[in-house]
Nucleic acid binder design. Structure first.
Lengths: 329, 329
DNA sequence: TTGTACGCGTTATCAT
DNA sequence: ATGATAACGCGTACAA
């Protein structure tokens, strides 16, 4: 079923049908005829043919580091809600944290979609070079990249606030369990917030209290163990993610510590898990879904304004956060 | 940059370039020339033009009920892993549990992609009617639909096994907290397993011990409360999902019950939460990622065998499950 | 082994 | 307001 058949059935030319479908510049009587035929046949124009002609795909590509995490799915949900309002759909590319796949997908997507939302963990010069060659708008979410529109979280201040809350509540030896600094937002910025908070409060930095691993619960468990078995035992732990915190809690409980009696703990994420683990976690709420919504809005506005490259488009959204107080301090 | 420019640069006709890209029927010397040009230009054929010609999109559409749940993201991960091996990408349509959107997306996707994986909660005659009109293969995951290839879980037996385990462990009054039976798998089948297990063990069904709500923790909380405030107090609860179980636990703990001392609890899902909640939940592991992988395999094989409609294609995969014993009984 | 010519379904231009 | 026709980028039958 194509536009020509519809035209025949309606007794008009295919141009008229096309106009009916698009600008709508058609006489009332033909309008009715065409409408009837389309309704009875269930005709939907072939997107690919339309794309070939118009250079519009009505698709947004999203590159994600890992599809099955709570963070990712909340961001995607926000994007999906937003772009579907504009008749756009989602093409999802999962890199599984493989940096080469990120580059590959950037290249594949560049002529498949009208815009790319790139959920990044770490962006290298190589990335930037590839991104510069792309002539559709790109929006980065989760990291602040100076060359591109970015939606990111205020990791530095969130982290600083956490440490300050811990101090206010009387904790003195606050340990830090984080991730590799390659990840600018979660690794570097959160650590920087921790360090600066201590500094501003005139507390000497103790390198032994800083442990770096990956995003897994196992890492939280292991690093917490290392921390507690050392003679520089902390009285509080700041874990950069809920997942890490849960791993740490697991160790602490096993080792017979009471939380928060013997040791306090605070993390970032406000994941579902943080609300049900015992003790319920003090954490920080990030507006992940909102960040998806915002990136959707930005990409749509760039597309609608016919922006070809979003390089140096100065849109930066630093999202707020909310400290959540529960039972772990 | 299109195929004609590449041809010019390589000093051959565009047919030769096309052959290089596809069947590869090209002389060695031209092969090298073309390869060089493609490499230096970074040329990638435009998918849409190719599609228009070949009727192949190299896209799989996935319709999901809710994008931001652990189950969904695990299934999608499996699909993504599998189809990416075949050079396919994922087009995701999120219905947000809106049944009309399901129909809508079936109609939209039918000429956008080469195959549809439909993650359904409940399939009506209306769905079937629409699906019959679609001339690309459809695979259903999460429900067993007799007319279409289906990957589903053995809800009936999993549920029965849970109840039997509870009985073996000495529990006598086992309550059931479930969801509306519209959802055939989670609602109907799991309840059926519960009822039959009791029957086979000659235990009289007590309607008061059966509570039906939705998928939320709140529902688990509320229904558990109702159960415990009645004079027919159960000594064990079978919750059909981990989420519901967590809600129930929340109530029980608040009300001063000890688990499993005063009451046992068992659920289905083996979600991340089930492993960290206190007490750690007895639950059932379902192979969600595998189900995604399998649906990917099936859809790819249907596509590769040029199957136009998968109606009455007799592929049924009932996935196994694994009972997980932890601390809640 | 290579190239020419045509067709896929749509929109845009231009005359009428 | 309408219709004929060209064009989008690619693949392929056919002729050479």
């Amino acid at each position: 079923m194509n536009i020509i058949e519809i035209a025949k059935l309606a007794g008009v030319s295919k141009s008229t049908v096309s106009r009916y479908l698009n600008d709508g510049y058609v006489s009332a009587e033909n309008r009715v005829k065409i409408q009837d035929v389309i309704k009875s046949t269930g005709y939907i124009p072939l997107r690919q043919a339309k794309t070939l002609r118009t250079k519009k795909t009505n698709l947004i590509g999203v590159i994600v580091p890992k599809i099955s995490t709570e963070t990712t799915s909340r961001v995607i949900e926000g994007i999906s809600d937003e772009i579907s309002k504009c008749g756009y759909d989602l093409l999802i590319a999962n890199t599984n944290l493989n940096i080469n796949k990120e580059m590959e997908y950037l290249n594949i997507l560049k002529n498949q979609v009208d815009g790319i939302i790139f959920m990044a963990t770490k962006i290298t010069d190589k990335h930037i070079k590839i991104m510069e060659e792309i002539d559709i708008p790109i929006v980065v979410v989760s990291q602040n990249i100076k060359e591109y529109p970015s939606i990111y979280y205020d990791d530095y201040n969130a982290s600083k606030d956490v440490v300050e809350q811990l101090l206010i509540n009387g904790y003195e030896k606050i340990a830090f369990i984080g991730v590799y600094e390659d990840d600018i937002a979660v690794g570097y910025e959160r650590k920087r917030g921790y360090i600066n908070a201590l500094e501003e409060n005139k507390i000497k930095l103790n390198e032994k209290l800083i442990q770096i691993g990956d995003f897994s619960m196992e890492s939280g468990y292991k690093l917490c163990k290392r921390l507690m078995e050392d003679n520089e035992k902390p009285d509080a732990i700041f874990a950069t993610t809920d997942n890490i915190a849960v791993g740490a809690i697991e160790y602490l409980l096993e080792a017979g510590y009471k939380i928060p009696k013997h040791i306090g703990i605070w993390s970032i994420g406000d994941s579902k898990i943080s609300r049900v683990v015992t003790p319920k976690l003090n954490t920080v709420h990030y507006y992940y879904k909102t960040s998806g919504k915002n990136s959707g809005e930005i990409i749509m506005s760039l597309i609608n304004n016919n922006v070809k490259s979003s390089k140096n488009v100065d849109k930066k959204f630093k999202l707020g956060y909310r400290l959540i107080t529960r039972d772990s301090i």
